[in-house]
Write a protein that binds this DNA or RNA. Structure first.
Lengths: 347, 347
DNA sequence: GTGAAAGCGCTAACAG
DNA sequence: CTGTTAGCGCTTTCAC
């Protein structure tokens, strides 16, 4: 860039954001005192604190948590990684977890990892680069690189959604195979002899539906089809899968037991079946997964598996906070989230 | 704490996270060179870069972005605040915006503000305390305190979802009243004479439905009921509202024009109406809002208003990046997100 | 209860 | 292309 002779060095910025020294000067105290008023008010005399607060308000001071974090080595932030929050369980977990952490003075930095599209290791690197005080992460299957990065961060980690035999640290999840087995038993108890599944192709969904299918088969039932759709699940995918499945069902009398890995798929299946005059539960017994509002509020309301996401979030926050505040014994750090089959009109 | 004579000062920590000087030492270069390899690789000779990369891998170095951010005064992070991402438009905006920002090297810190439960000013304070490089925020109605905080942060701000006459900075939204008017015209063109609305009680939803009602009335139509439900919208709320509305509808022949502020409400209304034998569009013309998958994939697929959330996210990211990288002229910073009525089987 | 000094881990700015 | 110096704004630690 050519010099223009008038010698303009960078123009002074509009007015740098207010910092702690500005507040200290205005209040006539040391910066450290301002810091105490903000972080440990009980160690400051009420009179001083009042003066300082006035100065803070007058200047509109917003403490720089970046600087504070660097100095204290605590970012007061926890990172959360989930594939999506379209799923009610994730949504509940994240919401509850965030609220609980916020109350304790921590902010949650939420990242959506999607289903496979994103480079999870790169995501983790930038996340951990911000030095979160803890990490909440969905899914217990990590690449070796990811596993190592997480371990070396030396922070409390809670894995949710899945149970694993080798948790990195703490764990709040449930056994997806157990879900599949329970749903199978539920159908078997009703005397079903034929079954089918519609599943998203993500590992957990497949665990549920495959274990279901296996259990049914072992009990002597006949599989009429196991459709797989690309994650994430959608209503449309459920409709398509059902349309593919339907021909195989023609001419049967006893209702088919259909287990879908998501309520969206189940709803789609019901819509499509309904179009061809197949009613549930007369011709078709359907069980979804997730207890989306749709399962309770659509017509007919359909049977599904409910997982207590809110409880999971609460427990996860408790685990993290106990570790962070160091009170009490180091928690065992394993929690099986309860799930249950909510029976409605389609079974 | 009593001294025990053996003089143990704080035990050395397990092994402090690797830092830039460790990498520099191992690679036999200055810390600054390591920094360059990471941030501006093209200013380092390939040979040196290779050495440094080896050291980085060997040590599993994860750069401390907190420290980097403090030093460079750029956090490489942007904050996003939306009430919920249950709504497809928000979900799309956030997803697209995040992806676009990530590609440019920025991480998005997502916060869900809910509908009123949370102290938005407190949320903003902690968010801005982390010195995001930019802010994406839904809704153009802010408290004076919030407005001031945002302004004084001196960062690019994009307000989405709403148009406002006094944007803080940049704006990507649409006119909710215009939506209401357009939907009214749509129904009027079909010859409807009676209408009703079901709306969530958040300001934007009310703008849409009230403007709709007003336009209908001005055209000589008769209002048969304007139900309001608490935000956020749910299917169940739609069902209840419809149940309340139904008695007023008895005995009429020409189909009622029903506009719902959300597809969830519209779906609930359709379910409830269907239960009483009312079919759409024969007895009831329904238009929702949001173009949720549900509107296209349920039966009957229903008419709705689609807002191009993905486009909004893309535009917003473009605005922010242009400001951040300083290339090109300061963008005008206003964008009307297109919306359109997607006509399906219920009208 | 308050203050002064030192430094968190990194990068801007300026040499060489 | 690479290194040196001097902070970023706060909190830790230790004095008073």
């Amino acid at each position: 860039m050519p010099s223009d002779g008038s010698g303009p060095k960078p123009i002074e910025r509009p007015r740098m954001p207010v910092k702690i020294t500005d507040v200290a000067t205005l209040a006539g105290v040391a910066p450290m005192t301002v810091s105490r008023v903000i972080n440990t008010p009980d160690r400051v005399s009420p009179a001083t604190a009042a003066k300082v607060r006035v100065a803070i308000d007058r200047l509109g001071y917003v403490p720089n948590l970046i600087a504070g974090g660097l100095s204290s080595r605590r970012s007061r932030m926890v990172a959360a990684v989930v594939p999506t929050i379209a799923h009610p369980m994730f949504a509940d977990v994240v919401q509850t977890f965030s609220d609980a952490m916020r109350v304790a003075g921590y902010e949650v930095m939420l990242s959506l990892s999607g289903y496979g599209a994103i480079d999870k290791e790169a995501l983790l690197r930038t996340l951990l680069g911000r030095r979160p005080d803890a990490l909440l992460i969905a899914g217990a299957a990590h690449t070796p690189g990811a596993f190592q990065m997480i371990s070396e961060a030396h922070i409390p980690v809670v894995e949710i959604w899945d149970v694993s035999n080798h948790p990195i640290d703490m764990l709040v999840g449930f056994d997806h195979e157990e879900v599949g087995r329970d749903v199978a038993r539920f159908f078997l108890a009703k005397g079903h002899k034929r079954f089918a599944t519609i599943s998203a192709d993500d590992p957990r969904a497949l665990q549920r539906t495959r274990t279901f299918a296996e259990t049914m088969r072992r009990a002597g039932c006949i599989g009429m089809g196991e459709a797989t759709v690309k994650a994430p699940s959608t209503i449309t995918a459920g409709r398509r899968a059902m349309a593919d499945l339907l021909p195989a069902l023609a001419g049967d009398t006893a209702p088919l037991a259909l287990f879908c890995s998501s309520d969206l798929l189940a709803f789609g299946a019901l819509v499509e079946a309904g179009l061809l005059g197949l009613r549930s539960p007369e011709h078709l017994s359907v069980c979804g997964f997730g207890n989306f509002e749709l399962s309770a509020a659509s017509e007919p309301a359909f049977t599904t598996v409910s997982v207590e996401g809110a409880e999971a979030g609460q427990i996860a926050a408790g685990f993290v906070l106990q570790r962070l505040t160091g009170n009490g014994p180091r928690p065992e750090g394993r929690w099986h989230v309860p799930f249950r089959i909510v029976e409605r009109r389609t079974t």
